[in-house]
Design a protein around this nucleic acid. Structure first.
Length: 564
RNA sequence: CGGAACGUAGCGCAGCCCGGUAGCGCACUUGCUUGGGGUGCAAGGGGUCGCGGGUUCAAAUCCCGCCGUUCCGACCA
């Protein structure tokens, strides 16, 4: 491609709305432009990178026996009502004029198709995938392409006769994903994850570590334990039983509101304090007991309550319901509340909690004796440095970007959409499904997050829009024009994707800076100095290494450098 | 959905407090210049000051409403 004829709107200045490096560089290098919040258009350079990512994904999906489909983005609303996902908050965007919705993912459509055509165990297993635009009603798009209202996703679905079959399809995907991200040049890791609104029994995420990430992940350096903070656990000690249980007693605690105030007022250890949090689950009041200052993890709470709508109760509502303020609520003698507790409180005694009476706390609470409990659940958010649940080494929490997510769905969708087959014995059984996603734009954005410098992008050759970037230093010099055109012709004929900066009246420095910003793996600088010896200069973007190469040897030298 | 900020030329911003000529840098056009790290000089083009209403002789500027965008939080398949 000749730069003089190309649409590559580079910008020297950083757009004010872009905060994270990949977003800034994708705009500055002319890869994309924002149309409206969470919606981007890809320009030719960006589109080339996306296509490369898609091609890698496609090859690896085909390699595990995947068959490529193209499902419709427009779906009948009724399909989503059937699975109960129409009303998930902030999920679906809909069409005003018809009873249609824009698909946020395609389990429903896949299940619909399978219900129609999968009849027998002989039709299974299947791996169906597509690369398609998804739409979601993101309340808050951000970080450029990392969280948009419209994005391209590779989504695949396995259909199996059994859970063992699902495990196989799941493992195939995990390996395919490792291949994909490795080929894209990404430094990634895997974590156990929450399956959230997708439902199902197990899931893993493929992440890259990044300050810009909106997920928090927990990892153990020593044993390799890795989990999303949403589900991560630690082997922090239980509160446990401390001596013999004493009779409960009210303690006057004037103006004590927070756990820290309570701890210092009573000179008590945090592990003896039972914090009460109040929520509504599907409208019903729930009291949640936590140790001291442990933070409630709402993902875990949602899992413990088996889904449904969860909302923290506000102070007014609480007062109306119990007659006490938030700092004084406790588990003993509280009516109309379902009570659950964090596992750390299991069988604990001699605890101090709210007395359901302002300015009073209740001492010597025994979980076994005094609390009518619906069960203990893991509900706390772990903190940096806590002991690993498997090897007790200190855990480390960091931010990460989710590139891919794989789910064992099971029969959730096949049951609600009646996807069944006849097994060897003529028995009707539900198809066992898995669902697997990769964000295509995220691959590109993560590649840039991981590989860049103060000058611009440093593309891996796997995703680079072009492999080679020729800079004709001075288009007023006939020798340079001639030589650079020869070089461009030779590389193009050798099927090496080449961008040729042939812009007249653009100074050398300007071209160098644009080339560094665009970040193609190799730059070939055609200038007077080299031509005197019939040579051109090859610069490796990633290392800034330069070498003079004769025009005759250039194609083979470029091939060699790209192969290494 | 809570909190905050911003909206003036393609981009980055000043002007607004204290009402009266719309400005700077980059980019763009033309000419000359330069030609190995965003050359220099000169002359130009480009704006319903987000939209609507109000106050006023007069509104980018003051007031009200709306819309949009971003950031923090909530949410996030």
């Amino acid at each position: 491609m000749r730069f003089s004829k190309a649409f590559i709107p580079t910008q020297k200045e950083t757009p004010a709305d872009a905060i994270i490096p990949s977003h800034q560089l994708m705009l500055r290098a002319g890869l994309m432009r924002q149309l409206t919040a969470g919606v981007y258009m890809f320009l030719p350079l960006g589109q080339r990178a996306l296509l490369k990512a898609m091609q890698i994904v496609r090859e690896e999906m085909d390699a595990i026996g995947g068959q490529e489909f193209l499902y419709p983005a427009l779906n009948p609303e009724s399909l989503w009502i059937q699975t109960g996902r129409r009303d998930i908050p902030n999920f679906i965007l809909s069409i005003k004029e018809r009873e249609l919705v824009l698909a946020p993912t395609h389990e429903e459509v896949v299940a619909w198709l399978a219900a129609m055509h999968i009849q027998s165990y002989k039709d299974l297993p299947q791996i169906w995938y597509q690369i398609q635009t998804k739409f979601r009603n993101e309340p808050r798009p951000r970080s450029g392409v990392l969280r948009g209202r419209q994005f391209i996703m590779k989504d695949s679905y396995t259909l199996d006769t059994s859970w063992e079959g699902l495990d196989k399809g799941y493992d195939l995907h995990a390996q395919a994903y490792r291949n994909i991200f490795t080929r894209c040049g990404l430094k990634f890791f895997e974590v156990g994850a929450s399956s959230g609104a997708m439902g199902g029994t197990g899931s893993q995420e493929f992440m890259i570590e990044s300050e810009s990430g909106e997920d928090a992940v927990v990892r153990c350096k020593k044993c390799g334990y890795a989990a999303n903070l949403e589900i991560a656990t630690s082997s922090i000690p239980l509160a446990g039983r401390l001596g013999a249980s004493k009779p409960t007693a009210e303690i006057h605690t004037p103006n004590v509101r927070t756990i820290d105030e309570l701890a210092s007022f009573l000179k008590a250890d945090h592990t003896r304090l039972a914090k009460s949090l109040v929520y509504r689950h599907n409208g019903q009041p729930v009291l949640i007991l936590m140790v001291g200052n442990d933070q409630l993890n709402e993902s875990k709470l949602s899992a413990a309550l088996a889904g449904g709508e969860i909302k923290a109760m506000d102070a007014q509502e609480l007062k109306a319901l119990t007659g006490a303020d938030a700092g004084s609520i406790g588990p003993v003698g509280l009516r109309r509340f379902r009570i659950i507790a964090d596992k750390r409180l299991e069988s604990a005694n001699n605890l101090i909690g709210g007395a359901n009476k302002n300015d009073y706390h209740l001492g010597n609470i025994d979980m076994e004796r005094d609390v009518t409990l619906d069960g203990y659940f893991d509900l706390r958010t772990i903190e940096d440095g806590e002991p690993c649940p498997t090897c007790s080494s200190p855990l480390k929490i960091s931010n990460a970007i989710e590139l891919g997510h794989i789910f064992k769905l099971g029969t959730k969708y096949s049951e609600s959409l009646n996807v069944t087959f006849l097994d060897e014995n003529g028995q009707v059984k539900p198809v066992v499904m898995g669902s697997y996603g990769i964000g295509i734009e995220r691959i590109v954005a993560c590649a840039i997050e991981q590989s860049r410098d103060e000058k611009g992008i440093i593309w891996d050759k796997a995703l680079a829009p072009y492999l080679v970037h020729i800079i004709a230093v001075n288009m007023n010099n006939k020798d340079i024009v001639l030589a650079s055109n020869q070089v461009y012709k030779a590389l193009t004929e050798a099927s090496l994707e080449t961008l040729f900066d042939d812009r007249p009246n653009v100074t050398a420095g300007f071209k160098f800076n644009d080339a560094d910003l665009l970040g193609m793996p190799l730059q070939i600088i055609v200038g007077e100095k080299g031509l005197r010896n019939n040579q051109v200069e090859v610069k490796i973007r990633s290392t800034n290494e330069r070498k003079m190469v004769s025009k005759e040897d250039l194609v083979s030298e470029v091939r060699k450098l790209l192969a290494s």
